Computed example of a mutant assay.
Amino acid sequence: MIHKLEMFIAVAREGHFGRAAESLGITQPTLSTGIKQLEEMLGVQLIFRGHRYGGLTPEGQRALIWARQLVGDARAFRQEMRTARHGLTGHVRLAVIPTALTWAAALSARFSQVHPNLEFTILSRTSAEILTMLENLEIDAGISYLDNEPLGRVTTVPIYAERYTLVCRSDHALADRDRLAWADLAGCRLCLLTPDMQNRRIINQNFMEAGVEPEARVESNSTVVLVAHVLQGDWVTILPADMARFLSAGTDLRIVALQEQRAAPSVGLVAPYREPHTLVTRGPW
């Protein structure tokens, strides 16, 4: 039953029978047979289909909610039983907002010290993608913003508050300042994360409250690309303090604190809501 529910979730996630089968490592006929058997067991049609996937039926949409919960609980149950016998082992899948990647490395290293048999996959994703991946059971947890945009029904564990700095070359006009107001950045040639990133939306809010229209001459979904541009020319970028220190280490770049004009965004662990809590959310974060 659980295996067939996983097939159903994969089809709903991929919107395509071939891609769903590939993601599960099975053939498409095996997948189609499993879905048909699940429909027979439940007594309802779950998927509209002719020559191709046609979406979920109303019954399928309701079933998907239960399928995700049942499969998630089954995975957590298996992990709890393995842990009771062998200690915490297995593979933890994390999706992390780009500005929190240094924190993800520090936290996974700390977790590995306590549980050396764990393996980690850490992916860089937007906050919206993290919530979708959690919903589709593609990851075990995420590290994302906790209080700026709706999260839905999840378990959260705060880790740090994101405080912003300007990163510029040592010969830039603002490099020798101890602290800057957001209004001081008017007219600067900015490199910023792309608008689909929640970090960019937060930065835009800070500029708006300072009465400044930011001039983003370069946009990227990579903080490395932003800092590389700062090194190459008269650009500047805005990064959280920890990420700024990491990417500027060993360079001639300057980091200047920005005055806080609104509450610092809270960043932390986000995981599917489950009682009892899973070992991931109980870990040494």
Score class of each variant (00 low, 15 high):
W182E: 05
Y145S: 05
G250L: 11
M208D: 07
G211T: 01
I130N: 13
N199T: 15
H277N: 10
V256P: 00
E215A: 13
S222G: 03
L94D: 05
T165Q: 10
D140A: 12
H172E: 03
A161K: 12
E129F: 08
V92Y: 05
A210S: 07
L107R: 11
Y273T: 08
V267S: 02
R125M: 13
E260R: 02
L88N: 02
V256G: 00
E215H: 14
S248K: 00
P240L: 08
D196A: 11
A105K: 04
I202Q: 12
A100R: 08
F48Y: 14
P214L: 07
L146T: 04
E213F: 03
V71L: 05
E219N: 02
V270A: 06
I130L: 09
E138L: 15
R282D: 10
A249V: 10
E215N: 12
R189L: 12
D73I: 09
P29W: 04
L180Y: 00
Y164Q: 11
R75L: 13
T33W: 14
Q205M: 11
A181N: 11
E260S: 03
G211H: 01
L239C: 05
V167P: 00
R179S: 06
Q28R: 15
I139S: 03
L131E: 09
A67S: 08
A244E: 07
A105W: 04
L107E: 11
P240Y: 06
P29I: 04
P276D: 08
K4L: 15
T278S: 14
I202E: 15
A109K: 03
G152W: 06
R179T: 10
M81Q: 15
R78D: 10
E275G: 03
V44M: 12
I159N: 01
R110L: 04
A263G: 09
I65M: 07
R85P: 00
R201I: 10
G283V: 08
W103R: 12
T237N: 01
T57C: 01
R62M: 14
A105M: 05
G211C: 01
V227D: 04
M197N: 13
L239Y: 05
Q28F: 12
